[in-house]
Design a protein around this nucleic acid. Structure first.
Lengths: 155, 155
DNA sequence: TCAGCATAGTTGAGCGCTTGACTATTCCCT
DNA sequence: AGGGAATAGTCAAGCGCTCAACTATGCTGA
């Protein structure tokens, strides 16, 4: 093992600033969206992914990947979205094991009404707080980390 | 309301890079720590806060604030840490309504054995991936957001 | 002084997630 | 062709969180 490479004081400050700001921002956006639309951020992401897919349908596992979700979690989530009438399941023609999640018109309408709330939240809590240089730096750091954590997700 | 201020393409990319990297990083650190030590990141934070407090004890609400936790959540968490013998509750002398959470020696030992795992994770997934300039930028952005989200948490 | 309000913390119900086991289907290799 | 491994998705049990209700204590002002 060897002696752990402890963080020095400056690293501690950088880590804490990142950690707290990330947790607070994710939490605030999620709470605000949930309170005002009844749609959590996780469910919002599912609706967005489906709305952008061709014919508004996606394979379950593809959707899970896109939403940073386990298959089990997505399966539960889609069941709940089905209960709301926003998504329906459909067997996949090409692969008998597969299921397609399909966004319904009601689901699309729900997404359309939530989208302005969501985007205003991201603006208010994030972009309005940062200079253009800071936005660029945030993107740069984010993409570098993404290259390490999950390169396939880079643009 | 007015027309929402939609994100342009560059803003979308910056937002997605931040969001995915934050979610993936938090998730990976938490899973790694939990798998290797049996202590989730949230519980680790509680133990750290107590270990740094004078006499290794803190008021429940102070501890909740420090850990970005609701009081209810902290109360449940402390109950579970009590079952492990890592924390105990103690009535507060100055305020009969209050409770003190006290870190036990067993709790301190658990923290000591988890700390190297945690810090290696933060190094490996975060600091080792970034240049000094990127670390500085990350801190700068984090502190700016923190100033908006919760100024009291700024250094 | 004590009624009314504020604060500290706990609790229970219910929800969503994780883990791991399970079924069903497809792929692959001989 | 057929058996075994891989893949897709679901499900049940259990854990941790949220929300709202609740108890208990402290504070404040007429």
């Amino acid at each position: 093992m060897g002696e752990p490479r402890w963080l020095d004081v400056e690293e501690q400050k950088a880590w804490r600033a990142w950690l707290y700001s990330a947790q607070l921002l994710l939490d605030r956006l999620d709470r605000d969206l949930t309170r005002r639309t009844g749609i959590s951020h996780a469910y919002y992401e599912i609706l967005v992914a489906l709305s952008e897919a061709s014919e508004r349908m996606m394979r379950m596992s593809e959707l899970a990947d896109r939403c940073l979700s386990s298959r089990s979690r997505l399966s539960h989530a889609v069941s709940r979205l089905e209960e709301r009438g926003w998504v329906r399941r459909q067997v996949c023609e090409e692969d008998g094991r597969g299921q397609l999640a399909v966004l319904t018109d009601e689901g699309f309408a729900a997404l359309e009404s939530a989208a302005p709330i969501h985007v205003e939240g991201v603006r208010r809590e994030l972009f309005d707080q940062l200079s253009p240089e800071q936005v660029e730096a945030m993107r740069n750091v984010g993409e570098t980390l993404l290259g390490h954590l999950d390169p396939s997700r880079l643009p």
